[in-house]
């Protein structure tokens, strides 16, 4: 659906995106992750053809964004960051204008507008002036605009930025529903969101693509994966020795809790679960355990590990 080939963008001396190459298959929901100023928006703007890349190119649905920009844009719906809209139009008028700009004509204009208004829950605001809309509704109008003409590819730049938790949930549900028929690229810095809806993650930092994979693969290979913490009461040294003798466990850190229990932080090979064995070892001594927990690595860990500056 999308192939980016060595996309490169410099602004004066500042390099915003360095040699970004990736490909996105049909039907994928791809999350662009990265700290502020990492180059997410710049990359997306290059894909839409709004910012001409300094070097490299991309193809959308087989059309080159530089050689045949109009064809490429016909296959794409784009929702820019902060959703710029014409404030002096009503929702319906705005969508009508956008639909016609996208080349929809005749009866289809009305059908399409009806369809996107329904999908985005804009029915009650149909005739409202855009400058009186709340942030959440503006966001929906932007999304409705991107959906007009049923494009194969949706590019959404921070679709949930500035929304309250309920609105975020609604937009998320909507995006998930859309993924049945569309390929979606979205950028965000809310990791939780990506974990919930994306089936591919592209992590960008300082203009470079650090990783592009499924969230599962990314988290599986993390250092943090496989880490277990245990709290028990009893002799410390023998337990630590026995635990460290056990195969996947590499090292055990210990500390005391305020009320005299031992807290063990067990570092093991990624992708292993040493809870059962550890519990058995401690139980064989008859010591009580009040807490045992295997750290589930999240995208946050991946993100921190990849974009840490130290």
């Amino acid at each position: 659906m999308v192939t980016a080939e060595h996309l490169h963008k410099t602004f004066g001396r500042f390099t915003a995106v360095k040699d970004a190459s990736f490909s996105i298959e049909k039907g994928e929901i791809v999350g662009f992750l990265g700290p502020n100023g990492a180059g997410k928006t710049t990359t997306m703007k290059m894909l839409t053809g709004y910012l001409p890349p300094t070097a490299g190119t991309a193809r959308i649905a087989g059309f080159d964004i530089i050689d045949s920009p109009l064809e490429a844009r016909r296959h794409m719906g784009y929702m820019p960051e902060n959703v710029p809209l014409y404030d002096d139009l009503r929702v319906y008028e705005y969508l009508d204008y956008r639909a016609r700009l996208k080349g929809i004509c005749g009866k289809s204009v009305r059908n399409q507008i009806g369809e996107v208004i329904e999908k985005c829950g804009l029915e009650p605001k149909r005739k409202t002036l855009i400058n009186t809309l709340s942030k959440g509704y503006r966001q929906r109008v932007g999304l409705a605009d991107a959906l007009l003409g049923n494009p194969d590819l949706l590019i959404l730049d921070e679709p949930t930025n500035g929304l309250d938790p309920n609105q975020i949930r609604q937009i998320r549900e909507l995006i998930r529903a859309l993924s049945e028929n569309h390929t979606v690229i979205l950028s965000t810095h809310i990791l939780h969101e990506v974990e919930m809806i994306c089936n591919k993650v592209i992590i960008i930092d300082q203009g470079e693509i650090k990783a592009a994979d499924t969230p599962e693969n990314l988290t599986a290979n993390l250092r943090a994966a496989g880490r277990v913490s245990i709290e028990y009461k009893g002799d410390l040294d023998s337990i630590v020795q026995e635990l460290e003798a056990f195969e996947p466990i590499k090292k055990v850190f210990t500390e005391e809790t305020e009320d005299g229990w031992h807290r063990l932080l067990v570092r093991a090979e990624p992708g292993t679960d040493s809870r059962e064995k550890a519990a058995a070892i401690i139980a064989s001594h008859g010591y009580p355990i009040r807490h045992i927990y295997r750290h589930i690595p999240s995208l946050e860990d991946v993100f921190v590990e990849m974009t840490r500056r130290d």
């Binding site: 703007k45 839409t48 053809g49 709004y50 109009l70 064809e71 844009r73 016909r74 794409m76 784009y78 820019p80 902060n82 710029p84 809209l85 014409y86 404030d87 956008r98 700009l101 996208k102 080349g103 605009d145």
Partner: peptide, 14 residues
């Protein structure tokens, strides 16, 4: 200024 130029230039419009 409003940023709507971005929407305009990313629609299939020359």
């Amino acid at each position: 200024r409003q940023g709507t130029l971005e929407g305009l230039l990313t629609a299939p419009v020359t």
